[in-house]
Design a protein around this nucleic acid. Structure first.
Length: 629
RNA sequence: GCCUCUGUAGCAUAGCCAGCUAUUGCGCGGCCUUGGUAAGGCCGAGGUCCUGGGUGCAAAUCCCAGCAGAGGCUCCA
């Protein structure tokens, strides 16, 4: 009996029925194959092929190859833990972004444990077990795994009639697969971090130990990966922020950055950038109080739902809270007089500080803070205006993320959750408006079903930091609820009262977080327009200091952020220092320049721009700042 | 809030199964060098070893509690 196998290049060949991808790979002489796809189904290399199919041999470099490779690594780790800690109960062990992890019910893991586990894993790799797939009926599977309540729960929950498991040596684990054919293929691995994790992600459940690892088919790849991580850590905004003196933290105000002069320049430049856009895009900026009486929070619903996260205090025996959000105060503005439909959409912007009492364990650098400010605005509009407003907002968003900062992002729409306010029809209309607006702006997006807030659907946009963690920056939420709850109304063309829709939106998001992400995005080398120190003038000798000051004054008069380094250090030394301070342009002046009225310029990357008249370089600077390149 | 780890001059570090004046580099200050594009030389100052308590003849070192930080989890912008 023969079957016909088609390869990705279109060629076809006949094989004996029941052959395996592994045998075929050996025959053709392809090495380092990890798994196979029969038609579009991912399978073990050793799975028999019983009928004609399209066959794709997967290597580690392919995402699906990695998936198989890493999951096998997780099993090797699980086997090692099983050997060393007999009481440990395995739960689930999926992949993460660049490796694998396994959640295990066991005693907390120490670094010594990690070393022991790694040693045992090496042993398992060198024992080079064959990995075999077993298929059981549900009943039989329950019997095999009866000592592990987590696996029992998984088997019971499964909708399949059968359960598969994989066996290597003495170890067996419930698993859909596929897997590598042998444990010996995992040539390089490292357990990189551990943490607590809750069973099924629920805080009420038992806390498990999660051990993360990375693995590769070659030792070299592991070394490369570790170097890459090291490089990424150098971009960490907390490290750079300290070294470049952008911001700092103090034990006495955890979660609240002290933004230093250089960081403040970046901060204010961003605010000015947004303000400038607001002028073009019809926003009206307001300034609102930090403290509000409890009555406001009761009216808005924050007191009932968000009290834990608010800083509250008694003032003259009345309870007040620092505002965690601007929206309620903007509704007060809307309500301050009778609004006509002619005034909509009304766009109210606010840069005021916000305070949220975040859990201690979640604070971190500039990306998760307790005190911050947003480019916050609320748009009050009619249901019909949603589409146009959102379309314009996305255009605004693209101007910031694509044109100006070139930050890669991911967008999602979060749709109606089970518990939701407002009619199904209103929701559907609003969700469609969001989708159309995204499509109109040609922004790719995913959908998070049922993840919307109870008061309306939203668009969330995420940007990655240097270690690949995703941070939400812009947010755009429709709100059918708060205007009604707080009694905001406008008078329609029909002479009747109507409740407006409220759009909560922030595009930079939180300035603090944005600065953190931006620092990592540029690795501290900010583009000229936003850079805290745009140019530094180095004098070759004291007698040229007067000329340095002269150039500085001229440049400063045009708004350039420039300093003079007139210390009696060698030029070499001063150049190096300016470069490690990431000053965009380094201007050296000495005899030649002072006589001819010129400047000699190089960049922080040590690229030589050359000598030119001081006016010419000034106009080049201005041009570059204006272009925001 | 939960789990693990960490906390030594401005920064980065050594010391940590207790034992002499707490190590080194950068930075900082002074002097010399008067210099032309990635670290010139010499000298010097700088420490509540996170805080509080305990054990010991003796604590940076061991134990407990607190505070802060890191990585996750759960939240969330």
């Amino acid at each position: 009996m023969t079957i016909s196998i088609t390869f990705p290049d279109g060629s076809t060949k006949n094989y004996k029925k029941g052959t395996t991808a592994q045998k075929i790979a050996e025959e053709i002489g392809i090495r380092n194959v990890i798994a196979a796809k029969h038609d579009s189904e991912l399978k073990d290399l050793t799975a028999p092929i019983e009928k004609d199919c399209k066959l794709k041999l997967l290597k580690f470099e392919e995402p699906e190859g990695k998936e198989v490779f890493w999951h096998t690594s997780a099993h090797i780790m699980a086997q090692a833990i099983n050997r060393l800690y007999p009481g440990a109960k395995l739960t689930i062990g999926p992949n993460w972004e660049s490796g694998f992890f396994y959640d295990i019910d066991m005693e907390p893991v120490t670094p010594e444990d990690i070393q022991r586990i790694e040693k045992e894993m090496e042993k398992i790799v060198s024992e080079n077990f064959t990995i075999e797939r077993k298929v059981y009926t549900k009943e039989k599977a329950l019997e095999v795994f009866n000592s592990n309540p987590y696996k029992v729960e998984l088997i019971k929950e499964s909708k399949e009639k059968e359960a598969s498991a994989y066996m290597q040596g003495e170890f067996i684990d419930l698993c859909k697969g596929p897997h590598l054919p042998r444990t010996g293929l995992v040539k390089a691995f490292k357990l990189v971090k551990t943490s607590g994790a809750y069973w099924k992600g629920d805080q009420k459940n038992r806390q498990l130990q999660r051990i993360y690892g990375v693995s590769f088919p070659e030792k070299k790849q592991l070394t490369e990966y570790l170097t890459l991580i090291e490089e990424a850590e150098k971009r960490d905004h907390r490290v750079l922020g300290k070294r470049l003196e952008l911001f700092m933290f103090h034990d006495w105000s955890p979660g609240s950055p002290i933004i230093l002069p250089k960081g403040t320049i970046i901060y204010n430049t961003l605010v000015e950038f947004i303000r400038n856009e607001y002028r073009k895009r019809g926003y009206r900026e307001v300034i609102t109080p930090q403290l509000f009486n409890k009555s406001l929070w009761e009216l808005s619903g924050h007191w009932q739902h968000y009290k834990e996260n608010m800083f509250s205090m008694l003032i003259d025996s009345e309870e007040y809270s620092l505002k965690p959000m601007n929206c309620p105060s903007h509704v007060l503005i809307f309500k301050s007089r009778t609004m006509s439909y002619r005034e909509l959409p009304l766009r109210i912007a606010d840069f005021c500080y916000l305070h949220r009492n975040e859990l201690k364990g979640v604070l971190g650098g500039m990306t998760r803070v307790r005190k911050f400010s947003q480019d916050d605005a609320h748009i009050f509009c009619t249901q019909e205006q949603i589409h146009t407003e959102v379309t314009n907002l996305l255009d605004f968003f693209k101007h910031i993320y694509i044109d100006t900062f070139k930050l890669p992002f991911k967008a999602y729409i979060s749709t109606k959750p089970e518990k939701a306010m407002g009619s199904a029809q209103k929701w559907e209309e609003a969700e469609n408006a969001l989708k159309h607006a995204l499509k109109k702006n040609s922004i790719d997006f995913g959908i998070k079903e049922g993840e919307g807030a109870f008061y309306g659907p939203k668009i969330d946009i995420f940007v990655k930091d240097s270690l690949g963690r995703e941070w939400q920056l812009p947010t755009l939420q429709l709100d059918f609820q708060m205007p009604e709850r707080m009694g905001a109304e406008y008078e329609g063309a029909d002479g009747k009262k109507h409740t407006p829709v409220m759009i909560h939106r922030a595009l930079i998001g939180t300035f603090e977080r944005f600065i953190g992400v931006l620092t990592e995005h540029y690795a501290g080398k900010f583009p000229l327009w936003i850079s805290p120190e745009q140019a530094r003038i180095l004098t070759v000798a004291d007698r040229f200091n007067y000329y340095g000051e002269e150039v500085k004054k001229e440049y400063e008069a045009k708004g350039i952020r420039v300093t003079v380094d007139s210390r009696t250090e060698s030029v070499n030394y001063k150049v190096r220092e300016a470069q490690i301070d990431y000053v965009n342009y380094i201007i050296v002046i000495g005899e030649k320049e002072a006589t001819a009225g010129t400047v000699t310029v190089r960049t922080r990357e040590n690229q030589i721009i050359g000598t030119m008249s001081k006016q010419e370089f000034l106009s080049r600077l201005i041009k570059e700042i204006y272009c925001k390149e």
